[in-house]
Write a protein that binds this DNA or RNA. Structure first.
Length: 569
RNA sequence: UGGGGAGUAGCCAAGUGGUAAGGCAGCAGGUUUUGAUCCUGCGUACCGAGGGUUCGAAUCCUUCCUCCCCAACCA
């Protein structure tokens, strides 16, 4: 054993892993692990879902199990096929492959049969109370519920009514099927919860075959049990639904319907992220009011938004891993997400030079005939990524941010009389500043040191600043979209009294640069390709790109310690 | 005057009676043809508060406080 092997600390298990390991140790489920990801097809997946996806699929992967994708489509008025494709695509993009693809609606016949069984056992009854009456009878936190007058209807009568509900004999909302549990329960979920409602709505899969639809609490556990899910993982708000989850399954006393042992529901804290919103309602509002360009706007915390922004699935998975799994309400810092994408892109993405806000530089002591090519590495620490050749001519562009007429303290960049290095090319000194009538700097007259080709001076003189640049004649023009946080405030829901949450939107969440200048090697970059623009950030080619007109999205900027230094001065 | 959860550094999060892991952020240095990366070092966390048990408690008991979820024919 070599002594310099890194000592791997065993990664501590989170509480769900501990449960799974304990179950495997006792051979519950024969050591089997089968999880499920159960989205309702009524919206796009976001980073919070990504955490759940990574948890469910990750658990299956580490314990040699599998995960089912199950669309929870029990409410036809809210769900649509439009979403199932996007959900599939997002899960796959994250790098996961499900075992079975199911729909809760696949189980409608089974659920119906089990419901009849529960009626026959005296565990469920048809209730004729109106919606308002049901609410009234249910009581509240301080007042116990009262039994529905239909609670003691005979099983035979309920059965007949339930069959006629299914047959479409009754109007929507006129009757429901209820579980007979406990109208005095402190847990409101147990006060004879609804199992079925009448709803004449076209279902995206079953069409008009049904006019009664099961409720979540009934359908979910039954679906899990049918699929012989071992661990049914959901978020904290379902904690007090767990007794109901268990109740429905345990009523199968003879074991005629479900395989044992039954699945176990486990709850964990959902992901929240600073500087963004995650609720479906809020996200929808951003889209509908045109605050963002769509569900895949790169500012959105949706999976498709992150993808378009240039995030990698590896980075999203690393993030999900780093935020952990626990039961405490949590808000992850968006900075951690940014750390994860930088960490991934830093090692895998080639470097390029791009000037976002061009400032023309003319090298006065160079003729056009003296133009040459430089060879620069595609990655400073990874020679296997190769090199590329760039033209260097007497007319260049550098970034406006890299020149100051009055250099502040510790300024390593260009200023009158100052010398900098042009990355991979040469050393350059600023001699003159040309301004327009308004006094804005429009051009720099500089001199290069012909002996410094490649970027090092033969006399060994030190030059601290290195700038990125592009040769003007060959430069490509491109649109660059600079994205930033959607909200200025860490918690956008913490709105001051009487103010609209939208007042907290970051007005600078998108800045479009219409004419950035890129090095010519970027010609032909394909949508989805990612690069680091040196000293600027990581960028991905957007699908809006057309021939001769590339569009780049800034995924995330590089860390900028100069900005910090200057802020402190 | 109900039920269910949770409280460990700015944000996450280990820890399961033996004297507080780790990551992000931050700070200070070093390396560097990206002020990037990389490397090094840095945190009296009085473990929500008070009592108690114990030789010893973040971990056990107890009282209290705070925060979150629940009264859709939503999921």
């Amino acid at each position: 054993m070599s002594a310099d092997l890194p000592i791997q600390e065993p990664k501590s298990l989170h509480f769900i892993e501990e449960i799974v390991e304990a179950d495997r140790a006792t051979e519950k489920h024969g050591g089997r692990v089968l999880t499920r990801f159960p989205p309702e097809p009524n919206g796009y997946l976001h980073i919070g879902h990504a955490k759940s996806i990574c948890l469910n699929f990750g658990l299956a992967k580490t314990y040699g199990g599998a995960t089912n994708l199950r669309f929870d489509d029990t409410n036809p008025v809210k769900e649509d096929v439009e979403y199932v494709d996007s959900i599939r695509e997002d899960v796959q993009w994250l790098g996961f492959q499900w075992k079975g693809e199911f729909y809760a609606s696949d189980y409608f016949p089974f659920m119906y049969d089990y419901a009849e069984y529960l009626i026959q056992q005296g565990k469920a009854y048809v209730c004729d109370l109106s919606e308002a009456e049901i609410r009234e009878y249910r009581g509240n936190f301080h007042v116990p519920g009262r039994p529905s007058p239909y609670r003691d209807r005979s099983p035979a009568e309920s059965l007949d009514l339930f069959r006629r509900m299914k047959a479409g004999e009754f109007p929507d909302g006129s009757k429901v099927l209820r579980a007979k549990i406990d109208m005095h329960a402190g847990n409101m979920n147990l006060r004879d919860p609804l199992m079925y409602r009448i709803r004449r709505a076209h279902h995206h899969r079953t069409g008009d075959a049904w006019c009664i639809y099961p409720m979540y609490d009934y359908a979910h556990g039954v679906s899990d049990a049918i699929e012989t899910i071992t661990h049914s993982i959901c978020t904290l708000e379902f904690e007090d639904h767990r007794p109901l989850y268990e109740w429905f399954l345990e009523q199968d006393a003879d074991g005629k319907f479900f395989q044992r042992p039954l699945p176990r529901q486990i709850e964990f804290a959902r992901l929240n992220l600073t500087h963004t919103v995650m609720s479906k309602r809020r996200l929808l509002q951003l889209v509908q009011e045109g605050i963002v360009s769509g569900w895949d706007d790169p500012r959105m915390p949706t999976i498709c938004g992150l993808r378009r922004r240039g995030y990698t699935p590896e980075a999203v998975r690393a993030f999900a891993d780093k935020v952990g799994v626990a039961k405490r309400d949590m808000v992850a810092d968006v900075g951690l997400l940014e750390f994860c994408i930088r960490e991934d892109l830093e090692k895998r993405v080639p470097r390029r030079m791009a000037v976002l806000r061009p400032l023309k530089v003319v090298i006065t002591n160079m003729t056009e005939a003296e133009a040459f090519e430089v060879e620069v590495p595609n990655h400073p620490d990874d020679p296997t990524m190769g090199t590329r050749r760039l033209p260097f001519t007497r007319e260049l562009f550098i970034d406006q941010e890299d020149f100051r007429e009055e250099a502040p303290k510790k300024w390593f960049r260009l200023a009158p009389g100052a010398e900098v290095r042009l990355r991979g090319a040469c050393l350059l000194t600023c001699r003159d500043v040309i301004k327009d009538e308004a006094g804005t700097v429009v051009e720099l007259r500089c001199e290069w040191d012909p002996a410094s080709r490649g970027g090092t001076a033969p006399d060994g003189r030190k030059v601290k600043g290195t700038l990125h640049w592009v040769s003007a004649p060959q430069a490509l023009k491109a649109e660059v979209r600079l994205y930033d946080m959607l909200f200025t405030q860490s918690d956008p829901m913490d709105v001051p009294e009487g103010q609209d949450w939208k007042a907290l939107l970051n007005p600078a969440s998108l800045e479009v640069i219409a004419e950035a200048r890129l090095e010519p090697s970027l010609a032909g970059a394909r949508p989805g390709e990612r690069f680091q623009f040196e000293r600027t950030g990581y960028f991905a080619v957007d699908a809006d790109s057309i021939t001769d007109r590339l569009v780049f999205n800034r995924t995330v900027g590089l860390k900028d310690s100069w900005a910090k230094i200057e802020a402190k001065q």
